[in-house]
Structure formats: C-alpha cells, structure tokens
Amino acid sequence: MSYIRPEFRHPASKTNTSGFTRKDYEGALSTLCAGCGHDSVSNAIIDSCFELGVWPHRVAKISGIGCSSKTPTYFLGKSHGFNSVHGRMPSVATGANMANGEMAYIGVSGDSDTASIGLGQFAHVARRNLNMVYIVENNGCYGLTKGQDSATTDVGSSSKKGDPNPYEAVDLCSMALQLGATFVARSFSGDKEQLVPLIKAAITHNGFAFIDVISPCVTFNNTPASSKGFEFVREHREATGKMDFVPVRSEITTNYEPGFVKEITLHYGSVIHLYKDDKLDCTDRNSALRAIQEHDEKGRILTGLLYVDPDSRDFHKVQQTVKQPLRDLNEEDLCPGARSLNAINASLR
C-alpha cells in the first residue's frame, strides 16, 4: 500500500547546471485521481524547472482552490508556496511580487478558479503585466466539487452525469490577449514535448505569461461527449508549430532544423525557436486573436505559443517600484520618516 514514493531514482539521473537532480524539484506524492491531467502538468513544471536549473528556493508557487490549485503541493517541494482563497491567487501573487521581484512566481489555477469566481482578479493581473507564470489547468469543469460545468465548458459539451452545456464558453487565451498579457500560449497536459518548452519560455519571460493547459478530468469530464476529454482533444488539436526553448547558457547553433521560421530573443537572452507556424505571427496580438478565432470556427483547438512580446515591461517597471526585495532594504529606506512624507505632500500641493 502506498502513498509512499520510493527514494530510488534512475541511476543515470543527471545533475543540472545548478547542481540539482530532478528529484530536488519533486513534491509530495499526488492525492489527485489516478490519471488526472493536472499531474502531468505538475510533472511538466518539474521537468521545466529542472532543465532550466532554477533554484528551488527562488520560486514561489501560488494557487487558489480546486484540484488544480492543490497541485503546487506535488511539485517543487523545496520552494515557497501559498494556497490562497478561491479565485484570489492573482492578488496574493501581486503582493508577493511587489514585495520581492527577484523570485520566480508560478501561479496555478483552474478554469473555475480563473474564469468564474476569479475572472475579475485574472483580468487585472493580466492588465498589470505582473511578472509571473499563470497556468490554468483547464478541464472544463469544477473537478474538486464533483464535476459541475464551468465557464470554459464548450457549448454542447457534457460531462459524466450532465446535460449538454447551454452557455457560451470563456476563451481565456483570447481574453488574456485582449487584456494585454505579454505571453500567451495554449497546450495540452498530454503533450509534454510541447508543454515543457512553453513553461520554460514562460518562466524566462519578463511579464505576465499565461498558459491555458487543457488538462482532462478523468473522473468527471473525460466522456466521449466532452470537448475536454483526452480523445476529443487529441482528435481536434492543432499546433502552431514546433517550438524550441534555448536557454542563455547553451550555445546557439546556426544550423537550424528544417522548417525553421523565426527566432525570438527573450528578456534575459534566452531564445525561442519557432518552426512551421504557417499564418500566425507570434509577435502580433491581432494575428494571434485571428488564428484562435479561425481555428475555433473550424472546430479545431489551436495549441502552442500564440503570442509573445519580447520587449515586455513588467509591473515593477511600469510602476517604477523597487525590484529589490523589500526585506533587503534597510529601515531608513523603507520608512524615510516624516520629513520625506512632508516633502512628498508638499510636492503635490
């Protein structure tokens, strides 16, 4: 009987550039349903952080409520974390980021957590271009509360016990694009080859990086009549094109693979290589919106990197706040005293 994971790992397990093994990025053993897509997303996050060589102690995981929001327990067990209130992950992430801009923030949310109760918070964190990764594990239902339809359930889709959903779905990628998110992607929990480079690029991106990951709920919403089940997604999915993430440290070769189309340099010097993305121009918001729309009309789900603004200016930059962690400031800088306040007040008169 096991909720115990063996200590042994593959003897050929590698050590990354920061001296950690993949095991150092694992968390507690998952308590989600066997086969839940969310567990695959957790593993994609583990793979991404391991491969990027991020320092676990420089990452904070923030989430709301839901099966998806439980998952930060199951990855990066040596990182910081805050499991907040339903739909309120963005405000906690904002506060944390304002207090310490030097950490990597990984927000994990669900489709209900984001598109229902948290829609308002989502809109504003996207607008503010907070420097964070925002992953929605989108299963088109309220998994934790037993599978009710959510705001991303497609019209006509039905879950295990439900009737076809009569309401129009919220498309979170389109919304994120319209609200000013500077990195927008869609992916599928069942395709780590696509998901891992996207998460790596998102972590590296300087600004609000949004990934809508279709992540089937095997228990309540993996029916043949559901548009968020494994089978449906596999059959209706289309990719914008293969994407490679090339971190700063690695040597960039000039021998691109066949089909190479574009190179996008991210803020800290890492590079995204894109292959075969036909009509979509990933640096043009409207092009991305159009591509999503066109695919949707054909009943196809467009996945992959949809939009990135390599010149993104994050919230700290816009607000001109100190990016230096508040805990590193001395008392004098933090509380400059009555004289400074008076000076500010005087300047406003």
């Binding site: 086969g35 593993n43 929990s189």
Partner: peptide, 15 residues
C-alpha cells in the same frame, strides 16, 4: 490505455 501519462509521471525510476 488512454495515454494519460499518469504512469510516466509517477514512475520513480522513469522506466
């Protein structure tokens, strides 16, 4: 098998 990857994800020794 529905190819959900659950076994791949859980396997401690990546078999």
């Amino acid at each position: 098998c529905i190819e959900c990857d659950a076994c791949v994800d859980i396997c401690p020794t990546e078999c």
